[in-house]
């Protein structure tokens, strides 16, 4: 498995608050890495830096060996699924997928629509093709967002708390979709508080604390072996919240 992302000595500050400090991390193709940590620990900031949505203050992020400086360095390679979906409300469900294919990949309209149908079928919302996103449930919206990201055939998909604004049943639907992608070998980086949902398929879990990687390892290591105090405190809290 090839190395896809290498982060060396990354630091990131906003004005005078340091959010990430001298952070090192790698992601190989085929891995499913979950990032956990308490609120404010820098999870979003880390993945947004990787996506090119935030500039870094120090160190570097290499994607396929090339430095990430902005979204122009990552598009086509990194797909992003946001907590609040960020679907395009003025496009139909089908167009949310086909329009970017036409605009960015210069695909013909009918071919783009065909591809949209295949992807919508895959996330089980093909029947919504002609509707607008405002008529979808939260879970359907997020599955559309996943399909839209998949359309660009990215090397990695980053999820930033994809289920945090959803009810538990809807969150379950979304994790089923993510689990399907895992079976297909899609490389993913998933920030989530719902750690029980991802422990089945995450190949590695990274615990972030105060802008640093405190512990990382397999789910088994994270849940059963590590005796890191901060991690154990954290797990106690979310276990409680996650029921």
């Amino acid at each position: 498995m090839g190395e896809l992302i290498r982060i060396s000595n990354l630091s990131k500050s906003f004005a005078d608050t340091t959010v990430l400090q001298s952070l090192d991390m790698q992601v190989n193709s085929g891995e499913i890495v979950a990032i956990i940590g308490s609120s404010g620990s820098g999870k979003s900031t880390l993945v947004r830096c990787i996506a090119g949505l935030e500039s870094v203050s120090g160190g570097e992020i290499l994607l396929d060996g090339e430095a990430v400086v902005n979204t122009a360095s990552t598009y086509g390679k990194v797909g992003m699924v946001f907590q609040n979906f960020n679907l395009f409300p003025h496009f139909t469900v089908g167009e949310n997928i086909s329009k970017p294919l036409q605009t960015i990949l210069k695909m013909k309209g009918d071919i783009a629509a065909e591809k949209a149908k295949i992807l919508l079928d895959k996330v089980h919302i093909l029947d919504k093709f002609e509707q607008y996103p405002n008529s979808l449930s939260g879970g359907q919206k997020q599955r559309l967002a996943i399909a839209r990201a998949l359309a660009m055939e990215p090397e990695i998909i980053i999820f930033d708390e994809p289920t945090s604004s959803l009810d538990p049943e809807l969150a379950h639907e979304v994790f089923e979709t993510i689990s399907d992608l895992a079976k297909e070998g899609q490389t993913m980086l998933i920030v989530t508080h719902q750690i029980n949902a991802i422990r089945r398929f995450a190949t590695r879990i990274v615990f972030l604390n105060k802008g640093k990687i405190e512990v990382e390892g397999t789910p088994d290591y994270i849940f059963h072996q590590s005796d890191n105090h901060n991690l154990q405190q954290f797990l106690k809290q979310v276990d409680f919240a996650d029921i």
Partner: peptide, 8 residues
Amino acid sequence: EAAAMLGY
């Protein structure tokens, strides 16, 4: 952000 991630 969504548009930028798709390559717009």
